[in-house]
Design a protein around this nucleic acid. Structure first.
Length: 508
RNA sequence: GGGCCGUUAACUCAGUUGGUAGAGUAUCUGCCUUUUAAGCAGAGAGUCAUUGGUUCGAGCCCAAUACGGCCCA
């Protein structure tokens, strides 16, 4: 019996696991399959609650239906000849009553070798206990999957965030909030898809491995394709490919997927993160502000039941019409307290950046200095939704210039809870201007800016065929999920956030 | 990259002035046919993150390292 021998050879493990292994061995010797695959359930636990959650004890007595459910044992209270336990499936929990006299002496004895953590299947009828709890009275209990490791303590749960992230499977078993967050995450993404689909946008997939990483200001991950012997980059954004599709005539496209940026890790940054990007021909950045208010408030209403969202002790009001719209320069003056004569003067701007403790880089443009002031003085104060628009042209290499002032672009960023949630603009579709902007970026890259854009000749060629005027936007999905689930860290909303390798875990 | 904090039983946590390691849960044994963090009685369980140092003596003091958390860049 190889499984038995394999289990018995594990007795170097800690005593709790050792006893569980011994129980498993005892079951094997009784001829019990520890991992059978022939159990069918006929209902979810939640369905039982939906149907009988309100039923009186007397009414349940007349219900002769036998329900068969399966799930993980999460609580166990045994009295000798009778045992109460709780099982949990994806939909909820229910108590089971198992009595020796109902199951038979031998089956009951075997079943009592089960532990908290095992997956079991139960068939039985419903009743209410003396204290009124809806309970399944078992006619049959079967082990479906043996668990060899103990679950965390049931009352306090799993507190150690490192274990919660490294062993997310355990976290999902024992932390209801974790399950809620990821269920909500799925609903949020589905809500966005439904919204876009209903407005005629077409979902597409564009390359994640790109020979020229474009569409954002960020440092890419590099990789190598062996057969073609070529350097490839993990995408930092899908933007330039999605806009090629506008040239191709698809007119309204969106993509929800991962981007990769080789930057620091923090409560707001994971190296891989999820964005929704979309492009809309014949629309402008002003249309996008309207759409964004409507879209995000719709999703909030769907997922949270309200446009008023609690985030870390603050109430964020997403009601359409209440979102502030302000120009970048006005925000520097009115929120950041920087006078126009200061932010529009290179020397004064540079001095103020230094004074605020931020580094200045030789040769950087005025727009970049203003952006640093914005990050320091304005962004943290933007708690309620704010569209900040008309960004400087020299930090917006893919945006259309404003008709009145070519030093500004028809671009906005959306801020709330003191952080950026979305970035959008009317698209630059003049190939000559685009080529010049790329050339500026190349100069900055050559001067040592690792985040500056690459030249993308094919993208310029595409624009030369003619891209209709359009507006496009990127929405940070992880940050949106953080907002709508009141999560303080991005790691709470990513199933498997990147962590350093665990010591001695064999690279797991 | 910098600063601060943390790492003690499977889990949640105590651990005084430096004097040979504690609780609850879980586990094991016994009792128990309506429990709800079930109860009662008993038992076992630890490389105090790692390495080095100071000391007669270190979970505690010092240093370095690893991993994590928060803040800053």
């Amino acid at each position: 019996m190889p499984m038995l021998e394999a289990l018995q050879s594990r007795d170097e493990l800690n005593p709790v696991i050792k006893t569980r292994v011994e129980k498993a061995c005892a079951l094997l010797e009784e001829g019990v399959n520890l991992y059978p695959n022939n159990f069918s359930r006929d209902t979810d636990i939640q369905e039982i609650w939906d149907q009988f959650g309100e039923s009186e004890a007397e009414d349940l007595e007349s219900v002769e239906q036998v329900f068969t459910v399966a799930g993980r044992v999460v609580a166990w209270r045994s009295f000798g000849k009778v045992t109460f336990f709780q099982i949990q499936d994806r939909s909820g929990r229910i108590q089971v009553y198992a009595a020796r006299d109902d199951l038979g002496a031998e089956p009951y004895k075997l079943f009592k070798k089960c532990d908290v953590g095992d997956v079991v299947g139960v068939s039985g009828t419903l009743f209410r206990t003396k204290t009124g709890e809806l309970t399944l009275s078992a006619r049959d209990c079967r082990l479906i999957t043996k668990s060899l490791r103990p679950l965390p303590e049931k009352y306090h749960g799993l507190k150690d965030v490192e274990i919660r992230y490294r062993q997310r499977y355990v976290d999902l078993i024992v932390t209801p909030r974790t399950r809620e967050i990821f269920q909500k995450r799925t609903r949020i993404i589905r809500g966005l898809r439904n919204y876009m689909d209903a407005r005629g946008f077409m979902e597409v997939e564009t390359p994640m491995m790109q020979p020229i990483p474009g569409g954002a200001t960020a440092k890419p991950f590099e990789t190598h394709h062996n057969a073609l012997d070529m350097k490839l980059y993990m995408r930092i954004a899908p933007e330039l490919y999605l806009k090629r599709l506008l040239v191709g005539g698809l007119e309204q496209v969106y993509e929800i997927n991962r981007n990769f940026r080789n930057e620091g890790i923090s409560t707001r940054h994971n190296p891989e993160f999820t964005m929704m990007e979309f492009y809309w021909a014949y629309a402008t950045f002003e249309d996008l502000m309207d759409l964004t208010e409507d879209m995000l408030s719709t999703v909030a209403l769907d997922v949270c039941g309200s446009c008023l969202v609690e985030y870390q002790g603050e109430t964020i009001d997403l009601t359409p019409g209440k979102w502030t719209r302000m120009t970048f320069h006005d925000s520097l003056e009115k929120i950041g307290g920087v006078a126009p004569e200061v932010y529009s003067d290179y020397e004064q701007c540079q001095a103020l950046v230094k004074q605020k403790g931020e580094k200045v880089v030789e040769g950087e443009k005025l727009g970049k200095l203003q952006a640093k002031l914005f990050d320091l003085l304005v962004e943290p104060k933007l708690v309620q939704p704010h569209f900040i628009y008309h960004y400087p042209t020299d930090i917006s290499p893919l945006s259309r210039r404003n008709e009145q002032n070519p030093d500004l672009t028809d671009r906005f960023e959306l801020f709330m809870t003191g952080r950026e949630m979305a970035n959008a603009f009317s698209e630059l579709n003049d190939p000559t201007d685009q080529r010049q902007r790329f050339e500026e970026q190349v100069k900055e890259k050559e001067a040592g800016d690792e985040e500056a854009h690459f030249m993308d000749e094919d993208y310029v060629r595409a624009l030369e065929y003619g891209m209709p005027p359009a507006a496009g936007q990127g929405v940070g999905i992880d940050r949106l999920v953080m907002l709508l689930t009141d999560s303080a860290s991005i790691r709470e909303v990513i199933l498997f956030p990147l962590l350093r390798p665990e010591a001695g875990a064999g690279g797991a």
